[in-house]
Write a protein that binds this DNA or RNA. Structure first.
Length: 574
DNA sequence: GCCGTTTTCGGCCCGACTGTTTTCAGTCG
């Protein structure tokens, strides 16, 4: 182990000690030692062997022994033990400028936050404001910093990719002379997390150099990673890799092929192989002849398949369905008639009830379901019964002002024993109730599943909120037997939320098709804490479509009277 | 953690800056 590596470990020990609240002078001793090791002249191993290292001011007996162990064995027991004593994710938080060990310690101890994604989510819910010594400025700064850090990591949330996609579309439209272009890859398939962006270009003049020039002119901080005659890969200043794929007559094929997924293409290739065709990475062949396609639909038609929407090209049973003409009509933006799961300043939202409602009306929705947190969610300023009554009064007043139908609801905490955070008497007064878990995540699968099922059995619960509690790129959800929960929801007539917040996208789309096969309604909910978040409903629709959702499967694709009817009969049923 | 010694434990760098709070705490360099 060389000087640099040893110094880094000593620094890390100092970080951990600081996070653990050790006396600052001990921490300083480690930092000091790290600097000494980094700067010391001569070979470190010789200095250890001769004992000369111990003579340097700042290296006492204790540090000398630790450095000796590192140099000789390549590891350090003390360090390994120390690392285990705090959550790994806390190290990431140290990268945030403006957050030192003291503040991270507070965030960890008071809010239980251990990862960047959790911290970001907490900021968006204004939970940092609740901590002593924290204010809006720090919270905003933290958010900005997290945004920066996220750019350097490998995978990205769709809310991060979306504006980049927009920027690329604008760039292509105004700078390149194209016949057509498509952003393909996992973005087109609306995967829940995305690594890079693929753009297939069909240029009027196949001028490769001019394309590169235009890119460099518009994005001066962009680095071209590699390029050849029909491929430009760059690390964009957005912090994500973008590949431009230049096409010719093979535009349709390239769109098809780069959309993927790998699993879908494999199955597709296997199928057409049986028919005497071959799928290669540059085209579809019959014997030695490449087949021309003028658009993607033709590719499917050629093999007697119904068009498979990109979102469901994941290598499950979509090819069989397409061959049988059984691809369902997937839900579209225009089908969404309302939104549930809207927070306001009554609990942890940033915008007032009136502003949230006004925005929903502006977006063309016919109904809006208000659902602030329940009383136990103290971290989110959950509503006591008194405040609830106040909110209902305000809603009644606002209803006179707005055309959009306002539904009174709540996001009620499912307590650890599966009971709910309001009495049945209170619950009966809501138009709808979303039940979600926000506390005590550490459970076995059986415990979590039973906790949720018990909550769903309450006659007033209409929607199960974010069923696993996962935060994408942040933390795994609590383990649940999702099929069992869906079966139970089916029996009880409870709808399940597809939480459209890009951090969640929970229920996972992989279970949606099963839910719809059981007749369980899915509610596509923005879980909005600010007016700008209501659009999550639209942004995440594509990921919901991956579960083959149709209009008939979606609770908020019903009109107002249908929804009211659903809510009413649901209670009678139980 | 280390240092320095009045050899047994008290002291260990600090000012600028920022944000929160209204006199101070935390971070950074």
């Amino acid at each position: 182990m060389d000087k640099k590596q040893v110094a880094e470990i000593l620094e890390e020990i100092a970080d951990i000690l600081e996070l653990k609240g050790e006396v600052e002078f001990k921490v300083r001793a480690y930092r000091n030692a790290a600097r000494i090791i980094r700067d010391v002249k001569g070979d470190l191993k010789e200095l250890v062997d001769s004992g000369d290292l111990a003579k340097i001011k700042g290296i006492g007996p204790n540090l000398f022994e630790k450095i000796k162990e590192l140099v000789n064995t390549g590891q350090l027991k003390y360090y390994e033990e120390l690392k285990k004593s705090i959550p790994e994710g806390l190290f990431e938080l140290l990268q945030i400028r403006g957050l030192g060990p003291k503040r991270i310690k507070a965030i960890y101890e008071k809010l239980g936050i251990t990862t960047l994604a959790e911290l970001e989510y907490a900021c968006r819910e204004n939970r940092l404001l609740k901590l002593e010594g924290f204010g809006k400025t720090i919270q905003d700064k933290v958010l900005k910093e997290i945004e920066r850090l996220k750019r350097s990591s490998e995978y990205h949330l769709i809310s991060f990719i979306f504006p980049i996609v927009k920027a690329i579309e604008d760039f292509v439209n105004s700078n390149l002379d194209v016949i057509d272009f498509t952003i393909t890859g996992s973005w087109r398939r609306r995967k829940e997390i995305i690594r890079d962006i693929d753009v297939v270009l069909n240029l009027k003049q196949k001028n490769f150099n001019r394309t590169i020039e235009a890119i460099q002119k518009n994005f001066p901080h962009t680095k071209i990673l590699k390029s050849d005659d029909n491929f430009i890969s760059l690390h964009s200043e957005f912090g994500v890799s973008v590949d431009f794929i230049l096409s010719d007559e093979d535009y349709a094929f390239k769109v098809f092929y780069t959309t993927g997924s790998k699993e879908f293409l494999e199955k597709f290739g296997k199928h057409i192989g049986k028919l005497g065709f071959e799928l290669k990475d540059d085209g579809i062949y019959k014997n030695a002849d490449k087949i021309d396609f003028s658009n993607e639909v033709e590719i499917f038609e050629k093999f007697k398949m119904k068009f498979i929407p990109p979102e469901i090209r994941e290598g499950f049973d979509e090819i069989e369905l397409a061959l049988n003409g059984e691809i369902p009509e997937l839900i579209q933006e225009k089908d969404l008639l309302g939104v549930f799961h809207i927070h306001s300043t009554y609990s942890d939202g940033s915008d007032t009830l009136e502003d949230m409602i006004a925005e929903c009306e502006k977006l063309g929705f016919k109904f809006v379901g208000i659902s602030d947190h329940s009383k136990s969610a103290y971290y989110a300023g959950g509503l006591t019964e008194d405040r609830l009554i106040q909110q209902w009064k305000e809603i009644d007043e606002l209803q006179k002002k707005f055309k959009i139908k306002i539904l009174k609801g709540a996001e009620v905490d499912i307590l650890p024993d599966g009971s709910l955070d309001y009495s049945d008497e209170i619950l009966s007064k809501f138009d709808f109730v979303i039940a979600s878990i926000h506390s005590k995540f550490r459970m076995t699968e059986e415990e979590a599943t039973n906790r949720i099922i018990k909550a769903m059995q309450n006659p007033y619960v209409t929607i199960l909120g974010h069923p696993t509690g996962r935060l994408l790129l942040g933390r795994d959800g609590y383990p649940v037997d999702m099929k069992k929960i869906i079966d139970e929801a089916s029996k009880l007539g409870v709808a399940i939320e597809f939480n459209a917040n890009p951090h969640r996208l929970d229920i996972d789309w992989r279970f949606i098709n099963y839910a719809r096969s059981k007749g369980v309604k899915i509610s596509i909910n923005p879980d909005a804490h600010a007016i700008g978040e209501i659009y999550y409903t639209i942004l995440s629709l594509g990921t919901a479509r991956k579960g083959m959702l149709t209009k008939q499967d979606v609770l908020n694709a019903m009109n107002v009277s249908e929804v009211q009817n659903f809510l009413k009969t649901h209670r009678l049923k139980k």
